[in-house]
Design a protein around this nucleic acid. Structure first.
Lengths: 251, 251
DNA sequence: AGGGTCATTTGATCCATATCAACACGCCGG
DNA sequence: CCGGCGTGTTGATATGGATCAAATGACCCT
């Protein structure tokens, strides 16, 4: 897999074209569907969006073990996915921003296998899975698109495997920052200046590092003139330098 | 996620009931489908299996970048999935044994994003994806089942994330052995005595460890009376002891 | 404004695993 | 039978990141 691709694929994202105005007007038609459907089909889709739901910072959209019945289109806000193990330790398994789809982890098990926790006040649209399944049979493009979204999730995770399996700390952080930047750009947000919504500890948990290591890497990048960091605010100053760190990869 | 579940979910496996005689008589009906379909539907399914293909040890079933058009049911043999990065380094992203499904990595991208390499002489059945998609619309249970298989892949990978993100070397090896054992059991093979099909280096690559570390862990488990290892042959002597190592997890 | 809590930074030390190195074993082809 | 190569084992050493520790700063609540 080309490295550039790896970056691109690290989110369950939707193509820019599929996303126009997604946040301004949340319905399935705009958030998670491919173009090329007939008007009648689009109308059918609109009937699928069940409810909008507001989730306050720190609250869970769903929790591991809860029955799975819907997937969610994030209208606004920011989430982390978290798995808690028996011994009480937990691990962040992903971050999701506005315009992305959440809840795929539940498909096929009948229940969710991670918690989705809002990192800031957020709003989502529920999409009942049974309706989606039903409609998938009727609308050709929808099924294909949905499989695409699912498989992107698979590919995303295999990108994370590389992160965790072969990259070293600074490379992981660089990859993380570049990935955030790309995902923000894909949603029309500024890709070079943004607020991290998560703590150093959450970043570390996601990347398989300790919070101190994350902090040190940020400091080092700052001192090296690659980024400017202040608390959760990040400005990418030298994106090529960052890419070099990411690609440096000792052989 | 319960730890036991984690183990269970680490393969793209199929329920035992779905699998009866899978290897003796490879067709889609037996290998990858849920019960409960009508005879007519089953007959339709049989038409989907395109070709059987033999792959010699060391050869690739498919390679990253090749166009994706089929998924594969492994009739016999053993495969590893491998991703090669730009700098020439590669990582093993999974192992697949007889009765499991291979090739899901290609769905949605139109091309495969990893190599599937046979670790021993193997035989697979191709299942053209377009046919599968088509039929999914016609047969209710098939679509649901297929989503299930895909999402199991997602869950599997999140199990691997835990491996790579939070476990230490010996825990990873224990988890790996227990997972192999379970998957073998699910296919009716002896779960306590088996041949690893892969080298220490391949195991290490999969688990994010170096081959020496894998070797040392095996030696230690051997000395501790948990397993007997000789080259690629493994006998699990004290499976509870192994589970303890796996669950030991320093907090 | 004052006090508590949580997030972050930075330094010092430790340790698990990588790395380097040497040797043993099995397998294959000559 | 020999030599070479791939694989595996084991020991010695190096090191990246974890861990421990302390201080600072941001934010919230009253």
């Amino acid at each position: 897999m080309a490295r550039a691709e790896l970056l691109r694929q690290q989110s369950t994202h939707l193509a820019l074209a599929e996303l126009k105005a997604a946040c301004a007007n949340c319905n399935l038609r705009e958030i998670c569907l491919p173009a090329g459907l007939t008007t009648a089909e689009l109308d059918q889709l609109d009937t699928m969006v069940d409810v909008r739901r507001k989730i306050k910072r720190g609250e869970s959209l769903y929790r591991a073990g809860e029955p799975f019945d819907s997937i969610y289109a994030i209208r606004s806000g920011f989430f982390k996915a978290r798995v808690t193990y028996e011994d009480g330790r937990d691990q962040v398994t992903g971050f999701s921003m506005a315009g992305e789809i959440l809840g795929l982890d539940g498909i096929g098990q009948g229940k969710h296998n991670c918690d989705a926790v809002a990192l800031e006040d957020s709003e989502v649209c529920s999409i009942p899975y049974s309706r989606l399944e039903e409609l998938s049979r009727e609308i050709n493009g929808l099924q294909r698109h949905f499989h695409k979204v699912m498989s992107r999730e698979i590919v995303r995770e295999s990108g994370v495997m590389m992160l965790l399996g072969v990259m070293r700390a600074e490379e992981r952080i660089a990859a993380f920052l570049l990935n955030m930047s790309q995902r923000l750009a894909a949603r029309g947000y500024s890709p070079l200046e943004f607020h991290l919504r998560m703590t150093r500890e959450e970043i570390g948990s996601y990347l398989g590092l300790k919070l101190e290591t994350v902090s040190r890497a940020f400091s080092k990048f700052h001192n090296d003139g690659l980024i400017q960091v202040e608390q959760k605010f990040v400005r990418i100053v030298d994106i090529d330098g960052l890419k070099e760190v990411y690609a440096h990869h000792v052989s």
